[in-house]
Design a binder for these strands. Structure first.
Lengths: 145, 145
DNA sequence: TAATTTCCTACCGCTTTGGTAGGAATGGTA
DNA sequence: TACCATTCCTACCAAAGCGGTAGGAAATTA
């Protein structure tokens, strides 16, 4: 299947909430989960990779929470998905030719390599700021706070 | 993971061999397996979906085998992968908005929808004839039979 | 009849997925 | 100091998907 797992999907929504909250200090995982209607317990699993990849910052203890480690316009969907789902290549042989002794002359391998590039480029072309802008634009009439 | 399973990968190679053999009558699965260094037993599983999708024709019994149901230039990688891997959407919500009550205003969903389009377009832009041409071009110096 | 090949169904071990759960470590607050 | 809220780490678990193997029936040719 060419399918995202819930890690990538929920992770993107988690990061979107942090982007919406950017500049307002740390945000509780509990609040992110509530706003996105997700399980806190499950979101906890997405945090460590995002943190080690330096995409988010965490503050422990009471009054703790999470915030983006960079500006929303400096974080692309590519980074987020890459961190949570792993590399984009449709076939391992694209990046590890040695695993198949046909790599040097396999014509389908070229297709998979090109596919990786288009997937990567598409995800790289969207930043968290784009999502925030799109969201705010769609909600201008009803936003009050 | 955003990964092709062996169904799509092996299926593409199976179809490529049939394209190479196009016009020469039915080809044995045994021979395809030998040329691509794959298991006959496993390739057997890829045949039914390809056949019901009218991409290949089969002839049973002795002197049987498989052949393309259409000209190589009329079969794209998109069709092959679609048949063997299922739809390309990274998230189910793209094509079935009802499974998530946030679909109408979810900003990440738009990303997944765009990603589906680029994957689909990339795969649709390559036909089996392209693969055959590429292969023959790379092997002109050493081809003899 | 015999050989060959497709075709259909079942099975199996392994990994991944999508969580739940317990509890330790940390930091703010009274 | 004690308490509480929160992050953080590790383990666990059921279900599904993956990558095959296997047996044998049906069809076709010779």
């Amino acid at each position: 299947m060419i399918r995202l797992s819930t890690k990538g999907k929920y992770g993107a929504r988690l990061m979107f909430q942090l982007a919406l909250n950017y500049g307002n200090g740390p945000m509780l995982l509990k609040e992110i989960a509530a706003r996105e209607d997700l399980s806190v317990r499950y979101l906890e699993h997405l945090v460590p990779p995002l943190r080690t990849a330096r995409l988010i910052l965490s503050m422990r203890g009471s009054k703790g929470g999470y915030s983006l480690a960079k500006k929303p316009q400096d974080i692309t969907l590519k980074e987020i998905v890459r961190v949570l789902e792993g590399p984009f290549y449709p076939s391992e042989c694209v990046e590890a030719p040695d695993i198949c002794n046909r790599s040097s002359f396999c014509v389908t391998r070229n297709i998979w390599a090109e596919l990786e590039q288009t997937i990567s480029a598409t995800l790289a072309s969207h930043t968290l700021q784009d999502l925030v802008d799109e969201y705010r634009k769609a909600h201008t009439s009803e936003e009050s706070s």
